[in-house]
């Protein structure tokens, strides 16, 4: 795997996202509560650009008429048919075992070091903190 610098931590603040191209793949990078997650930008259902969907919370229920609403900002709804994915794992809500989107490891790196970090046309400086996606 190679690490790719996709932006500074300032650029992708809590609740924000950035969509990048890495090796011909479109990948969405999300900041949820200060932690970074990266998902392939293709819905396994019908190929929509999943990472452009709405970020919302998780609605669950113990019984008809009762609602629990939690994990705001952690559930990504596909912009087409609304399938729900857990941003932190890439798994779909309705079928976590078998329906999922590829999730990539991320890390936050400070300072600039030569290779294996590939900054795709992204200028880097020594003092900044960068978000790195490992593909």
């Amino acid at each position: 795997m190679t690490g790719h610098v996709v932006g500074t931590t300032d650029e992708i603040g809590p609740g924000q996202r950035k969509i990048v191209e890495i090796d011909g793949r479109s990948i969405g990078v999300f900041n949820v509560g200060g932690r970074y997650y990266a998902l392939r930008n293709t819905c396994p259902h019908a190929g929509a650009r999943l990472c452009e969907g709405t970020l919302s919370g998780l609605v669950t229920s113990g019984a008809p008429g009762e609602y629990s609403y939690a994990r705001e900002g952690e559930i990504l709804r596909c912009p087409w048919h609304g399938w729900e994915f857990d941003v932190t794992t890439g798994r779909s809500w309705f079928d976590p075992a078998r329906t999922r989107v590829r999730a990539y490891e991320t890390s936050v790196e400070t300072g600039y070091r030569p290779g294996p970090y590939v900054a795709e046309t992204y200028p880097v400086e020594v003092e900044q903190a960068y978000v790195v996606v490992h593909v």
């Binding site: 259902h45 669950t60 229920s61 009762e66 609602y67 596909c78 048919h81 609304g82 399938w83 309705f94």
Partner: peptide, 15 residues
């Protein structure tokens, strides 16, 4: 339909 609209009927917790 449930796969996309599940949130309105969250007690339907399986297919």
């Amino acid at each position: 339909n449930w796969k996309g609209l599940r949130r309105e009927v969250p007690w339907v917790d399986r297919l």
